[in-house]
């Protein structure tokens, strides 16, 4: 079990929150979460770990799909948050190659309290605003809606398209839905709030 000793829960958490908020308010805007040496377990992007360290605490629960034992211990020890089944968790940490079953189970909130939904953090290989930065197969995502000035296109590698289909289904009954953060191996984050629509094209 790893206790993150170099993470500053006051100032690192604040800095990273501002970046997450910026990306959430401007879907398609990539921000980089780093600046602190942490050792997250395998199958957890560093940016995903920092999102967890910044937003989790004893008041909320989380669900982990891959390498569950190690990552669960990691978050429990470092945030006092508690694990919960996918259908009840406030945060779901998924992997881009996962099948959509956990995402499908995630709670979408209620009509009177749509804020009781889950945040979903998905680890992917890479996110880019330009099509030419990677040779891996990638999806082209065109976002529109609140926060986006017109349209914004991003390219994501290492993301199962079925996850996006499920996400679109979950977000069909706005204001119910799932708020998603994609993280990549270069510590970048991309947010897809439920208020946004997206079109997927392969490349």
């Amino acid at each position: 079990m790893i206790r993150e000793t170099s993470y500053d829960e006051v100032f690192d958490a604040q800095t990273h929150f501002r970046l997450i908020m910026d990306s959430m308010a401007r879907p398609g805007k990539l921000n980089v979460l780093n600046g602190v040496a942490i050792q997250p377990p395998d199958s957890l992007n560093r940016a995903s770990a920092l999102i967890g360290l910044g937003l989790l605490n004893a008041d909320v629960s989380f669900f982990v799909a891959r390498n569950a034992t190690a990552i669960t211990t990691y978050f429990t020890v470092n945030t006092a948050s508690r694990p919960a089944p996918a259908a009840e968790a406030d945060f779901l940490f998924l992997h881009g190659n996962d099948s959509p079953q956990h995402l499908d189970a995630a709670k979408p909130g209620t009509l009177t309290y749509p804020d009781t939904n889950a945040f979903v953090i998905i680890d992917v290989a890479s996110i880019s605003l330009h099509p030419d930065q990677t040779t891996e197969p990638r999806l082209q995502l065109t976002l529109s809606g609140p926060g986006v000035n017109g349209q914004q296109t991003v390219f994501v590698a290492g993301l199962n398209e079925a996850l996006l289909t499920t996400l679109r289904d979950k977000n069909a009954e706005y204001p119910l839905g799932i708020d998603t953060i994609l993280t990549d191996q270069n510590d970048q984050i991309l947010c897809i709030p439920r208020s946004n629509r997206f079109v997927v094209g392969g490349l």
Binding site: R3, S6, E9, F11, N57, A58, D59, A80
Partner: peptide
């Protein structure tokens, strides 16, 4: 509540 890492708490 509040049982988190405080070693580097400044």
């Amino acid at each position: 509540i509040g049982q988190r890492n405080t070693t580097n708490y400044k």
